[in-house]
């Protein structure tokens, strides 16, 4: 399998070089930028498969950059940040980041995340080969073959992770799934404690498929434990 192209964005030259050297050393093709504006310019010109982005940067910070990228792309984004508070993570995830890496981190963690993001993107396309081509619950119809979701017959745009999460919950509908189980299944075996990821993703899914996202009909929360898909 050929290695993907990664855009690395960080204003700290030391860190930028560290990421770049490691990725290039392992066969990835990289582009680097030291601020958001530069990153967007590169993103427009080149075919980028993954974005690794620092949050605290001058001249358009990381969060704004994510928002701009998400306006017309579902490219996987991994955020690097010195801020490890839950709110910071949720803010980034809400804007559309796929993963969040708190500084400092080792090269192993970085590579694992990069691979996990790639894997998730692959999975969503891999589900084409499933036996049953459709999942239907209530007004929600997931076409696994065409890789799309219809709610009330209306097409709903989902990111690969959102799609995988929904399919996973629907396939296990009626079963209570712990945070850890969901994270390991969808994000990868390296995950398990990132409950805030689920909060963001479940929230986003509810916005997209529930009639009343505040009082969900399908995606139910088991407080302090996990989530389950209400089988109707």
């Amino acid at each position: 399998m050929s290695k993907i192209t990664v855009l690395v964005v960080d204003d700290e030259k030391a860190l930028l070089d560290f990421v770049r050297h490691n990725l290039e050393g392992r066969g990835y093709k990289t582009f680097t930028a030291t601020n958001g504006l530069e990153a967007l310019a590169i993103f427009k010109q080149e075919v980028i498969d993954l974005v690794i982005l620092d949050v605290m940067m001058p001249d358009m910070n990381g969060l704004e950059t994510i928002r701009r990228i998400r306006e017309n792309s579902t490219v996987p984004i991994v955020v690097l940040s010195a801020l490890g508070e839950e709110n910071d993570k949720i803010q980034a995830l809400n804007l559309g980041a796929d993963d969040y890496l708190t500084k400092p981190f080792g090269v192993g963690e970085l590579l694992a995340r990069v691979e996990a993001v790639q894997r998730r993107a692959r999975w969503s396309s891999a589900s084409q080969v499933q036996d049953h081509s459709q999942l239907v619950h209530g007004e929600i119809m997931v076409d696994l073959t065409m890789h799309r979701v219809l709610v009330h017959g209306q097409l709903v745009e989902l990111t690969p992770t959102e799609f995988n999460l929904l399919v996973y919950l629907m396939e296990n509908s009626g079963r209570l799934l712990t945070h850890e189980a969901i994270l390991k299944s969808i994000w990868g075996p390296e995950y398990g404690r990132e409950a805030e990821y689920l909060r963001v993703y479940i929230g986003r899914l509810r916005q997209k498929i529930e009639n009343d996202p505040v009082n969900p009909q399908y995606l139910k929360t088991a407080h302090g434990y996990g989530y389950y898909f209400e089988s109707l």
């Binding site: 030391a14 500084k103 090269v107």
Partner: peptide, 14 residues
């Protein structure tokens, strides 16, 4: 604090 730490840890792990 974390930016230099990140560079240090990054290069050490590298």
């Amino acid at each position: 604090l974390r930016t230099p730490l990140a560079a240090i840890k990054g290069y050490v792990t590298t």
